[in-house]
Design a protein around this nucleic acid. Structure first.
Lengths: 335, 335
DNA sequence: ACGCACAGTCGAAGCGCTTCAACAGTACGC
DNA sequence: GCGTACTGTTGAAGCGCTTCGACTGTGCGT
């Protein structure tokens, strides 16, 4: 282990024959620097392999260029989707020169307080926010800005972004109704997810029920565990439904298999529309008509909103991305 | 947004009527402090809600109490397993008062250099290291310690930890051989994983082949994509194999379904042993005899090794955790 | 020819913490 | 009663950076 001292901004300044502050201004662009000086400084930086000391920078400038991402790693959550969100946040953050500190949900409010209090991060993004999330009050009293992916009950003073799941549910219903279906059913997330009162599951259900009501058709909502057995049981319990809405990535394949086993053809006998990532919808047989979950956009938007707040700009309290319905071959009109 | 200045160590010192350095020593325990003073200081800390400024701390002490975790998010990797590793690392790190900065693999060597150079982290843990990983040379020339989960070709000067996949493969073979099987087959990771020359896939294969050779039985190795179709094709292509080793979490269920469809009973007609997380093995029908992937242990050990290196203690260059075979109901002796 | 604005650069202060050397007490052996 | 050995506490230096005010020159209008 070589005991080599860090290359400091002073080293660079000396090497380039300028003052340390000049180097700083070259880096930040907060003051005009002549092209020749800039070039000389940049050359020295490269020559010496200089990287500004993050701690020193954060101490002096009061910004860390790091954001915290609170990732739930909880039961019943579909990991691939979660990771899509996470990757989107990571990529978006890196694009604006920020790093990402990982926070688990089980550190809860204390973790949020610790991270925010230590000035380790400039702001936070919380994923999978529950309707009554214990971290939300903490967030409010915090000096640091935050953005929630999800929608808690009380969103005053917060910034939230998510897919408009209610509208997504409604879109599914409307599509099926247009095709002539009058007996609809929603296969949702596992029961635990509802018990935890996670917003997205509930909002979809409410959207489906409301839209069905408005259209004058019947709609049953059922939670569904992520196993084949549960999917089979659910499908068996709904023999009259001709329009199925599946909002549970992990169970999509199982539902299709169960229908096949029961001799119900898709889409001839029963139409299926899913709310799930495109990959899942495309990989299914037959390919599923679906409302995609725009993880990339949501994650990107979350970072964008956070950056605006960091810059002191006003942001809308709630951003609900409109759903889009992608037609594939799992839905057909009833005859 | 309240414009409240941070609570500093000086504020705490004033409040407690001691010097700032005393507060620091109470916090770090690097000097003896009388019980009464300590109590007074701790009370002030709590009263003011003091959190040491991470940047200032890292600047003064030259340690950030943060480690970087380089997560691959690449094709063909099984996310749940990956997240188990990640969670294990996170938990272990938090247990020793360190936070975790997320790094994506696609930032590659540049990302490693940036993070390490900026003193933002004390050390790094890289997951899913490939046999010829471009980040490895960078790691060597770095001043910061690192630990690899995985095993590159040239491990000199590095610290690696992983399950002993070769031994795992061999353990599967030996188990099947003991049961009297003489025609074995390995269904492995998707082809892309081999193409990328990711170590674990290859090491299992080599372990299987070598053990089969040593035992005088035949063993065929096949990559296998993570789809039902691929699993079916693979099983069809191996009509004579009576002992199947599956090293691909995503395809375990598909293989069992495929065998069922073909009318081959498990374990009466064909024995199946998997190398996969316990949850996968237990959830399968029938429950699978398996070599579990000890993600928790590996992750924990990685953090442990990193902490030792940070403390300047010598550590073994390569730690291969011995596999264990867990008997369940998917293997039986041939008759 | 004179002053003014402005681009370009510098030096110094200070961010909040750790740590070192030094000092004031107290306790003990003789 | 004096040195010795602690224990407990302090003030000051400094970590590497940003940023503010000040300074120097140059170009321009008059």
């Amino acid at each position: 282990m070589t005991r080599d001292r860090m290359v400091t901004i002073t080293d660079v300044a000396q090497h380039a024959g300028v003052a340390a502050s000049t180097v700083s201004y070259v880096l930040s662009g907060k003051r005009t620097i002549s092209a020749t000086t800039r070039a000389r400084v940049l050359a020295s930086i490269r020559a010496l392999g200089f990287h500004p000391h993050a701690g020193a920078r954060s101490l002096a400038s009061n910004k860390a260029n790091v954001i915290a991402l609170a990732l739930p790693l909880r039961q019943g959550m579909h990991l691939p989707v979660l990771m899509q969100f996470a990757t989107a946040v990571l990529t978006a953050a890196r694009a604006v020169d920020h790093d990402v500190l990982l926070l688990t949900a089980d550190e809860g409010a204390a973790g949020v307080r610790r991270i925010a209090g230590s000035a380790m991060v400039d702001g936070l993004i919380l994923m999978d926010v529950e309707t009554h999330d214990p971290r939300v009050p903490t967030l409010r009293e915090l000096a640091r800005p935050s953005v929630l992916i999800g929608l808690p009950a009380e969103s005053d003073g917060l910034t939230c972004v998510d897919l408009d799941f209610a509208a997504a549910g409604a879109a599914c219903v409307e599509h099926l109704v247009q095709l002539g279906h009058t007996e609809l059913a929603l296969l949702g997330a596992p029961q635990v997810v509802y018990d935890r009162d996670t917003g997205f599951a509930r909002r979809t259900r409410d959207g489906v029920i409301a839209a069905a009501h408005a259209a004058g058709v019947t709609a049953t909502a059922r939670p569904c565990d992520s196993t084949y057995a549960a999917a089979l049981a659910a499908v068996r319990a709904l023999p009259h439904a001709t329009g199925l809405i599946v909002h549970n990535e992990a169970v999509v394949d199982h539902v299709l298999t169960a229908l096949r086993t029961m001799g119900r053809r898709v889409p001839e006998d029963v139409s299926v529309v899913a709310i799930c990532p495109d990959e899942v919808a495309e990989r299914a047989t037959p390919e599923l008509t679906s409302v995609p979950i725009p993880a990339g956009e949501v994650g990107g938007r979350a970072v964008e909103l956070l950056m605006s707040k960091l810059a002191g700009e006003p942001v809308p309290p709630v951003t609900l991305l409109p759903p889009s319905l992608r037609l594939r071959s799992s839905t057909a009109s009833i005859h």
